[in-house]
């Protein structure tokens, strides 16, 4: 198992390197002169030229990329063009907000989605099932940012219960978490239901019943554990995406997370910030994926025996 994890971590290196290359190329193609941007529109031509030279912007692409990677390995992604601060410090300052939102959102989603999915599957075609699955379908069809706007319309504008955006108190937290939680819950409920339905008709479930196991235990002990792999997969995927910045939700609620940091940086053509944020997100995302793969082994012994 340890060997497997090590190998997977090593495999991350080329992936992250690839990500840096893609991001670097994309930003390289982006029109606009960084030197000009740092110095401002009114800076004299000669100063801009000097800065370009100093920053190495006249070097060939590959040289610039090499330098970027070298610095990145040292943990130096440069300074933001806009704020002049170290980009990594900025990212770490913003990450907690994103992490909080993602964790609570996913937690809420699992707590709602998994039980609803299980009940729906065990009572297939019942009224509960139909209503729950209709709601879930609406949930996955609703754009997050619109859902956010509608919550604001209801809870802030009309009822005046909660703030429409910002960060700080628990009250600020509720609507963004609700927005992410409900739509993620919908995805999880749908997956849980279909996975449980698949498992419930397996022979070993009948064996469990034939042993005299209580129905509740048949579902929660025998069936659920077998249904878990696809559920863990979507939960991991959703969590990874949320950690990568729920860009739109963060925008709607003026939530100071990674997602908004990235969008702002893109709009300001703040190249170092964009590069660092995307690399950071890719690393987080890959680590979540790895964690999910490791979790598989704990759920399914057949997978564990493949991880050598």
């Amino acid at each position: 198992m340890r060997k497997y994890i090590t190998r997977r971590l090593l495999m991350l290196i080329p992936v992250i390197l690839g990500v840096t290359f893609i991001v670097f190329s994309i930003m390289y193609m982006t029109p606009g002169d960084p030197a000009q941007m740092i110095l401002g529109e009114s800076a004299p031509e000669s100063a801009v030229k000097a800065l370009r030279e100093k920053m190495g912007l006249n070097d060939p692409f590959i040289v610039q990329y090499g330098r970027f990677v070298k610095n990145a390995i040292m943990g130096d992604f440069g300074r933001s063009y806009a704020t002049k601060k170290e980009v990594f410090a900025e990212i770490f300052a913003r990450f907690p907000a994103t992490l909080q939102l993602a964790s609570v959102g996913v937690l809420v989603a699992v707590l709602i989605g998994v039980p609803v999915g299980i009940i729906s599957a065990t009572k297939q075609y019942s009224l509960f099932d139909s209503v729950a699955m209709l709601l879930a379908l609406l949930g996955v069809s609703m754009p997050n940012f619109w859902q956010g706007l509608m919550y604001i319309l209801l809870f802030s504008v009309t009822l005046g219960w909660l703030p429409s955006g910002g960060y700080g108190s628990f009250k600020h937290f509720i609507l963004p978490a609700l927005t992410l939680g409900t739509s993620t819950a919908a995805v999880i409920a749908r997956m849980t239901r279909s996975s449980m339905l698949e498992v419930i008709r397996q022979d070993y479930i009948r064996t469990a019943r034939a042993k005299g196991v209580e129905e509740k235990k048949v579902i929660l002990k025998h069936a659920l554990k077998n249904a878990l792999i696809p559920i863990i997969t979507v939960v991991g995927l959703q969590f990874g995406h949320l950690l990568g910045g729920a860009v739109l939700t963060e925008t709607v609620y003026s939530w100071p997370g990674i997602g908004r940091l990235l969008v702002d940086a893109i709009k300001q053509k703040d190249t170092p910030m964009v590069q660092a944020t995307v690399v950071f997100i890719a690393v987080t995302f890959s680590i979540v994926n790895l964690a999910v793969d490791i979790l598989y082994a704990y759920v399914d012994p057949r997978i564990k025996s493949q991880y050598k």
Binding site: V15, I16, G18, V19, I22, V23, I26, M27, G240, H241, G244, G245, V247, L248, L262, V263, I266, V274, V278, I281, A282, F285, S286
Partner: peptide, 12 residues
């Protein structure tokens, strides 16, 4: 490509 959430990739 999969290591970057697709909406972010599109944004970039």
């Amino acid at each position: 490509l999969l290591a970057v959430p697709s909406i972010l990739l599109a944004i970039a």
